[in-house]
Amino acid sequence: MTAGGDHPGREALTALDAALAQRPHKDHSSLSQATTCLCAFRDNLIAAGRDGRPSPDMMRLNAIISVVLAGHFPLGAVPWDELVLARGWLADLVADADG
């Protein structure tokens, strides 16, 4: 499993898309890949923040991680609708980060 790379946010988006495409069957590999990439993305932001450039995106990213993790470990049914929302938030975040 790869994580990080130069664009962990975009990789997370790809993995999340793969997971969403797999509906109705939960795809553990894609979801754990998405989580790993999101965390690598966050690690980058954290490292940047500690260098004195605190990121306003951190909270958005943390919230996305919370929702993606809930897709992987749902209480009851997989919250697909929430994962779709998270996918949108992540796309915005990645676009902002790139922009």
């Binding site: 966050r42 954290i46 923040g49 951190m58 909270m59 958005r60 943390n62 919230a63 996305i64 991680i65 919370s66 929702v67 929302l85 938030w89 915005d92």
Partner: peptide, 9 residues
Amino acid sequence: ETFAETLPD
């Protein structure tokens, strides 16, 4: 560093 106060919505 890991806190989420709200979801983006």
